[in-house]
Design a binder for these strands. Sequence first.
DNA 1: CGTGATGTTGATTATAATCAAGGTCTGTGG
DNA 2: CCACAGACCTTGATTATAATCAACATCACG
Lengths: 260, 260
Amino acid sequence: MLNASPTIQILNVANALDQEHIKLLESAQSHVLQHKPGDMIVSTGDQFDAAYLVRSGWLARQRDNYAGKRQIVNIFMPGDVFGAHLNFVRWALFDIVAITPSEIAVVNREDLKRLCDNNPELASAMDWNTVRTLNIVSEHNVNLSIRSVKKRLLHLLLEFWHRLRMVGGADDEGFHIPLTQLQLGELCGVSIVSVNRALKDLRREGLIRLDGRRVEFSNIDQIKALVSFNPHLFDSFKPINDISSNERERSLFANSEVSR
Amino acid sequence: MLNASPTIQILNVANALDQEHIKLLESAQSHVLQHKPGDMIVSTGDQFDAAYLVRSGWLARQRDNYAGKRQIVNIFMPGDVFGAHLNFVRWALFDIVAITPSEIAVVNREDLKRLCDNNPELASAMDWNTVRTLNIVSEHNVNLSIRSVKKRLLHLLLEFWHRLRMVGGADDEGFHIPLTQLQLGELCGVSIVSVNRALKDLRREGLIRLDGRRVEFSNIDQIKALVSFNPHLFDSFKPINDISSNERERSLFANSEVSR
DNA sequence: CGTGATGTTGATTATAATCAAGGTCTGTGG
DNA sequence: CCACAGACCTTGATTATAATCAACATCACG
């Protein structure tokens, strides 16, 4: 699985870094893993001894139980980083599995630590990546408990669309989604049958269009209002010094959910 | 709500820090908030401009929707830190509300940043705190989707017990839980009626004892096996240099869930 | 002593899981 | 080129589960 590919592609930690820092990160990569769908990259119980930078592909961070049920806690996609715990010990609490063919760059902990020590903005971007993942998982938590099946799917699709746009993986109308309905169900905590029926309803109501694995939104604003999508959920990385005073005012985002 | 209390108690960021670093943190506190149950400490949309150190009390990080439903994403308890995003901008995506009377120390971002810049271990402990919260929320995610109501409650009670023990808030047999059954339901994604019946079953089966707000476990090992509790979930903070080589072997924790 | 929050229980209803069957699509080998 | 297998999608019928509704009990507190 080890591939000493010399052709290093753009790697932007989901838009957090400028070209200079990207070059630094790229120079620190020790090797690139090539995985096919179903491959397990990290198993529960493994110790994180390196950071993983997703360069292409979708991965699932998931838990299987004895009864054959599975929960996908979150998705990693190009630009995401996981395992970047430089200064303390961590054993994986979840499996990380390739959903699509994937390329993952590996940076040894010591190398990344040295880089972060000398480049505070890189360290900040790693922190930001962790907080971002926390917010995504927290939002999934809300999805799983207080949203209807249709709204769960809508919010999830909005999440994917926003994240992909940040890394050039989606256009204005929609994106390619490499998940099966079973996997959507494992993300939303519902059965494949419920996913199928909810998607049918959403199509019938004209909210989304589905053509094979292509997803398109008919009216983004309407959908955002429906699921009370928080525009700050996927804010880009903004180093604290870049903020002008007027941006620092209290945001007036209203946390209300439109009932249907 | 501002109280310039000069009597600073032990603050240990859930066991992460030694006395020297605790003293540093305490010296950086600008003031202490005193809150009563129901008070909102942070509202969705607020910008995090300071770090909050919980010195006493339980807080809920939660989302309300228009339909009157609420999801408590996670609980903050003594020793926990939130809002410690030193180097980038973050708007709160959830409300943070006091469940019990609470004391929360506030450290200005600039002050904490200076402290972390000069004390790498303090910065590491802050990172660790974020990763720990991520893992707790991820586990709640699993709870909400693939565990039965009884197992959700058992896992949640185990979580509280482990976390409280790390900060001296629980004994070997059990602990005081300041949550109503409604709040347990808002954590587990089920109605108050379901919580009531599940707790009744757990008591009848002899797995837990409940006397008012006192929770006791009858057979911890049995309960841990039932919910496949991962012993690494609440590992203490271990700086990477402290690890001996034999501890760095791959953990053999088996990720299986006992069915009932 | 009364009021409001919380806990408890039975009856009914809503929702989604499960079961079952068939359809579509794609890649493979004869 | 066609037959077949396997993965995935779709739909109707039935069953399991938890939500909701309703009523009452208990407790703390002013």
